[in-house]
Design a protein around this nucleic acid. Structure first.
Lengths: 157, 157
DNA sequence: TGTGAAAATTTCAAATG
DNA sequence: CATTTGAAATTTTCACA
């Protein structure tokens, strides 16, 4: 289920191109990698079915949607048992402010990436959705000054 | 440049649908929100030009690409001056292992999300690309057990 | 994997309210 | 002036070589 997949140079080149713009047409893709459009269709379909391609996503600007403040919350959940962390994860995932959630090693069990309208909204979020919870032992808030999405996630050619 | 944009309910519904699948056709989008496909084209174009839509991205599974270990590195850059942090940011962004980079408030200046092939690769990355640097005062590594991408980033309806 | 043709979609100019 | 119509251009998709 989580096995690495065999990818030939053509597959890699296709992924590289699609990472720059997921809307690149099969026709353009085909001419770029030197195969027929139908073969491209085939390959991309295979990459999707094999799980290498998880999905086509729209990247939105939170600031333009009124969420101009982003932050990372480090959260300790105690006791750290399945009965408690399952519901905790689900609640956090369901929050409209949540962008991403990580379960980590180390003293802080979870890291939550949130986007809010401002500091008041952030305070409300921390107090009402985190520290007020019995299982949340500690929350540490760090604001995000700036963030960068890094280049194509691809194995070296 | 970073102003919030006026979005009517139709725009929001379009964004909501495209967040679930960025490849939804204008035709399907149109029937779903109750307008003509050409108007959809127009609206999506406007959303792109206004900066709400930053791009169409492919989401890949790092594990299937041979990067089955992910981690977060907290990094202190000292002294924290522009002459040093500029090049630091650029170097980190250029690493093939980097997935995302955050500049944060708090004692740890940067958080780097990396995807590597295994612990040996992670050790090499930390030692050769971070702690060996004069400006890097401290690196704290936390492994990612599990991560979740959270639901559509959208203002409440 | 490629070819070629059919189906579907995108795109645009002109028309509409 | 945003929206729709309708038709042309392009792209996707599929059967078959």
């Amino acid at each position: 289920m989580s096995d690495s997949v065999v990818l030939d140079p053509v597959d890699l080149e296709i992924l590289r191109l699609l990472q720059n713009d997921a809307r690149t047409t099969y026709r353009d893709l085909a001419t770029a990698v030197g195969i027929a459009p139908s073969t491209c269709l085939d390959r991309v379909g295979r990459l999707r079915r094999s799980g290498v391609i998880l999905g086509h996503e729209l990247r939105l600007d939170p600031a333009r949607l009124g969420r101009s403040l982003e932050a990372l919350l480090s959260v300790q959940v105690r006791p750290h048992r399945r009965e408690l962390i399952g519901p905790f994860v689900e609640r956090v995932r369901a929050l409209p402010e949540s962008r991403a959630l990580f379960h980590l090693t180390g003293p802080d069990d979870y890291l939550v990436h949130v986007a809010v309208t401002g500091t008041a909204d952030l305070q409300r979020l921390v107090l009402d959705e985190f520290t007020s919870r019995r299982e949340v032992a500690r929350v540490e808030t760090r604001l995000i000054f700036q963030q960068w999405v890094c280049g194509p996630l691809l194995p070296p050619t």
